[in-house]
Design a protein around this nucleic acid. Structure first.
Lengths: 347, 347
DNA sequence: TCAAAAGTGTTATCCTTACACCCATGT
DNA sequence: ACATGGGTGTAAGGATAACACTTTTGA
């Protein structure tokens, strides 16, 4: 073949001459990181102060991908995270790529942005110094996801009634095109929020957040906080700090973490080298909600070959000294989906 | 805030003045689609003729994302797929985003490419006219993944011996830095290919492909085809047609499909509106490999509420007429992970 | 008549769930 | 002493895997 044929061609074999395919169109590629850890039984995410134009209190660590400087997307991510938080990431897994169109008001001025988003678990012992970054409980952003003390108040008292109303309105307004909005809304509600006999699925974090946004209950959030205050009782407000588009990314990341907790040993990337089974359970529960009672959880994890005792013990646990355990790295050779196989649903 | 503050800032809050963050650097964003279907018990992927410089016989349908023309990444994807194959996509799920650095030989000439890749299942009845595209069995690219007739020959006779050798060489060469290459290699081999007592995990398609590439057994492929022929018997060659980087994408997509088959009703996006349980089983087996015998599969899927009988029957099945079934869309309201819960492993 | 596929029924086994109960430490 | 968490045993229940067997068609 002729030498002037360009590498790019194997990715774009056909119709490269169409206007849609001009290379000159400037696109910038962003990288964002959801850096999670569990500190003192609380699931945390690293956020950095936001200096942008929007009324967001904080943002996820992020930056622009520069192919000249970084060989891979992940290398770029590590660079920005190191820069902004001082954290040296271990593993990072891609969760999604979002496209954001340029603002209508300033056409041609902003390059369009595509954001590649990552989930990066960090052990608690590496969370000490984090530069400008701070750790924030992720339930501060999504209080309805926190079932550790039973069903959250804000769900029953604020979210559910208002979502029902929102679905009902749609039913009246467009009763004719049923499968489009009306029926769809209440159906989505049932699925995402476990209404009406359906079960709450802790993995559907993004679905729930998107419904709340559509219903005006999350997103910019101002309206909701007022609503919550007007109830007159102590009601958790929805979305204290505002993350803007990054809230969607955080929601995806939480969902993904909850999902893969069950079939991969990813939980051990959030644990210190040695730990007690109780600590492990608390960490799992921080992420998923309460699930198993002690005895069964222990059996599950020990007889499942996920952990092995170190022989050491930990004193001052509040009770009897506890055996210390470590992750048994060989599980991945023996079992097929070596996660914490807690059953989705109550426990 | 001042009006000249740009929208982009909320994505890039910090250190925007660093050289790494220049907006002028040209990056092009590609979109690729792995369009899968199951035609006559064979899992297929849509490929288009490759007009590029490389010796690839074909490529996945793909194109460049143009934010001016398409509101979202998915809209862009649909555009290119329609253009190149005539197929109107139903659902499409993102599977990964790959970064590809510019070629060293032509510095500054090629804009760097980031590819966002999608998996799109298509029903067999929509596969008739596909423009320039053709349907290719995905096992043509990855014959070692096809366990429908037992363990594939090419695995035992070509791949396994050569991979073992490849791992052994590394062990000798660098016996000192054990955890880096040597031990790593044989460990990865065990995990990906189920060697040495470990079980074959059908979901690890990408891991296997990457190992084969590293070992020189896949990728450009020429060497392997020679090897396979030299055996003298009828041995399936590895990677007949060559897809270049798109093979990685295809591998990811197959893995993802196999994964989510088990916990989502995605299989029904590959089935016609009505079908027999046998057809359903054949489709599942085409994707995963053989797993359950008939009776248990039927019970699983029927008592699991995934399907409901239509009341109709299909004649000329080769045997007794079979009941026709349809997908019960309400499962998603009742069950938590409503997939075809076939156990990973033999059946 | 036979092969092939559709169906029915039953049993053994494993895994999960749930409950009851004892142990060791710090306050 | 008692609260708190650590740790053991065991029985009930449900889901799955494996088996054997009958039915109905087309060639």
């Amino acid at each position: 073949m002729a030498p002037e044929v360009r590498e790019i061609d194997h990715v774009l074999p056909a119709r490269a001459a169409l206007p849609a395919a001009r290379a000159e169109e400037p696109i910038s590629v962003g990288l964002s990181a959801v850096i999670v850890s569990v500190l003192g039984d609380e699931p945390m995410v690293a956020v950095v102060p936001n200096r942008g134009a929007h009324a967001h209190d904080a943002a996820l660590p992020c930056g622009r991908f520069s192919p000249r400087q970084h060989k891979t997307l992940e290398a770029g991510l590590r660079f920005w995270v190191r820069q902004q938080t001082g954290i040296e990431l271990g593993v990072a897994r891609q969760i999604c790529t979002l496209g954001e169109s340029p603002q209508e008001e300033f056409p041609g001025q902003d390059p369009a942005v595509v954001s590649v988003c990552y989930l990066a678990p960090v052990r608690p012992e590496h969370c000490g110094e984090a530069g400008d970054a701070t750790w924030q409980s992720w339930y501060a952003y999504f209080p309805w996801e926190d079932w550790r003390r039973g069903k959250p108040q804000c769900l029953s008292e604020v979210i559910e009634p208002r979502l029902e109303a929102w679905a009902a309105i749609a039913l009246e307004d467009c009763a004719d095109n049923a499968d489009h909005d009306g029926l769809e809304r209440s159906r989505r509600l049932r699925i995402a929020f476990g209404r009406d006999g359906a079960t709450w699925d802790e993995e559907k974090v993004l679905e729930r957040y998107e419904l709340l946004c559509e219903a005006g209950l999350a997103g910019d959030g101002a309206e909701v906080i007022q609503q919550a205050r007007s109830v007159g009782r102590l009601v958790p407000t929805l979305t204290h700090p505002v993350l803007g588009d990054h809230a969607r990314v955080l929601a995806s990341a939480i969902g993904e973490l909850r999902r893969c907790l069950k079939c991969e040993p990813i939980i051990f990337q959030l644990m210190p080298e040695v730990f007690t089974l109780f600590e492990l359970q608390k960490t799992v529960e921080a992420i998923l909600g309460p699930h198993l009672h002690k005895q069964n959880f222990r059996r599950l994890v020990e007889s499942g070959g996920l952990v092995e005792p170190t022989g050491e013990h930990r004193l001052r646990t509040g009770g009897r000294p506890a055996r210390l355990y470590r992750f048994r790295r060989d599980v991945v050779l023996e079992r097929l989906a070596p996660g914490v196989r807690v059953k989705a649903g109550r426990g």
